[in-house]
Amino acid sequence: MTTYHLTVNGAPAEVDVPGMRRLLDVLREDLALTGTKEGCGEGECGACTVLLDGAPVDACLVPVCQADRGDIRTVEGLAAPASSPGAPAALDPLQAAFLVTGGAQCGICTPGMLMAGRAYLDAGGGPDHDAIREAIAGNLCRCTGYTKIVEAIALVAGAHP
């Protein structure tokens, strides 16, 4: 066991765990952030995509020792916290766009898809559909055919040229 110091969604978090524990398990089990999903455990589906120092990574492929001192963003960190108890969270524009276009169906790929899309937008990505498709090519979705996900990301990218 070693103590690792992470920043998760802007807040410091210390975990005392084996260094080879997958960042995915640290998030889901040690930090109870179950928004990040496991779809395959081998970096194929992207359901566990989180941002590590701003870059999308598969949390199933990152041992926590490599995330030490890292800045981690998960789906739980996208929406602004509710202004008062019981009030709805203020959705990130990308989350709102998914709701409008129908980008989420079963929802299991959605957290990872949102993080890949967020990284694309944060890097200044535009509404070009091919570029968006490349940015989310590491995230498998079986429900949507991707069309409405691409539309959602393009909607946000187009709103902030």
Binding site: G35, Q95, L99, G107
Partner: peptide, 21 residues
């Protein structure tokens, strides 16, 4: 209307089986 359980799915609060403690 918007997908009813959409906000829960989009914010990571929807509980799938493996998310249930």
């Amino acid at each position: 209307p918007r997908r009813r359980e959409g906000p829960a799915k989009l914010t990571g609060t929807a509980l799938y089986t493996d998310d249930i403690v």
